[in-house]
């Protein structure tokens, strides 16, 4: 017994998933499945690729062609899958550490190529799987087990990074704003090119506990109170946006897509014959 969505798109025998109580990743994973359902994609033609970390356990639960790779390398594996078989809808599920630290190079280059892959970043602001070390999205001055005196680093704005590198679709949603996130993922999948959607998750177990953010409910409330839609933000005075973060669609443009361009080269040879 499970909801129709879960029955249709998940390997229900693998549930419950390994994520901690209150972890936002389950909400984000559901949004990805909902987006796929809304678009009516053929399950056999969807490939979900992940790296290593909490986020990257998602594909194991999802009933598609699923590939759980090495740390940071999801996008590189996904690039191979997509180029080899462009008819597959390739979706990468990754984390803040996986895609912005160890996999940062693959991220910017996949974006630069504008290859038709949709990347959904489950950002929990921490390395959860290893027990709470600071990540590339841990805010400055916050704590991790490896930032016991406060984090010196500045956090990455992952959609801005991807957008600057050439991604043609970038957006951010949250576990609280799950409906909106679903729409953003849908639009990302529909975009013919590299799309990156950051889903802000909640990690009550490590990030939350280390930084006195309270319970899962408290962290969800924090998302609710501090996320400002970019369309709303445009009309707000600067001081109202202090300490807030933006959600919504940041970039939506059209550029030549990598695999289509490659196929043109192959077609050139086929014509010559």
């Amino acid at each position: 017994m499970a909801s129709k969505l879960i029955k249709d798109y998940f390997r229900t025998d693998k549930l419950p998933h390994i994520w901690c109580p209150g972890c936002g990743h389950g909400i984000l994973m559901r949004s990805v499945a909902q987006a796929i359902d809304n678009l009516g994609l053929d399950k056999d033609k969807v490939c979900i690729v992940s790296g290593i970390g909490c986020s990257s356990r998602a594909p194991g639960y999802m009933d598609f062609n699923t590939l759980h790779t090495t740390h940071g390398r999801a996008l590189a594996f996904a690039t191979g899958v997509k180029l080899a078989r462009p008819e597959l809808e390739v979706i990468v599920v990754t984390g803040d550490g996986d895609c912005a630290a160890i996999g940062g190079n693959h991220l910017i280059h996949a974006a630069r190529r504008n290859i038709n892959i949709t990347t959904v970043v489950f950002n929990n602001n921490i390395y959860g799987m290893t027990g709470g070390q600071y990540s590339p999205t841990t805010p400055t001055n916050e704590f991790g087990t490896t930032a016991p005196y406060g984090n010196i680093d500045k956090p990455f704005d992952i959609p801005a990074l991807a957008g600057a590198a050439g991604a043609t679709y970038t957006a951010r949603g949250t576990a609280y704003h799950a409906k909106q996130l679903t729409k953003l993922v849908e639009k990302g999948i529909k975009n013919k090119g590299f799309s990156l959607i950051e889903g802000i998750s909640i990690c009550p177990t490590y990030y939350g506990r280390k930084n006195k953010k309270g319970s899962a409910v408290d962290m969800m409330n924090w998302l609710k109170d501090n996320a400002v839609d970019i369309k709303v933000a445009e009309k707000l005075p600067k001081e109202k946006l202090e300490g807030k973060f933006l959600i919504g669609e940041f970039k939506n443009t059209t550029e030549p897509e990598y695999t289509e361009e490659y196929m043109k080269i192959i077609e050139r040879f086929q014509k010559e014959r």
């Binding site: 499970a2 909801s3 879960i6 549930l15 209150g22 389950g26 576990a175 799950a178 409906k179 969800m220």
Partner: peptide
Amino acid sequence: CELRCPDYAIFLGGSE
């Protein structure tokens, strides 16, 4: 509740 349940433990049933 269904939308935000991280564990898929609550949902609106209904017949399919």
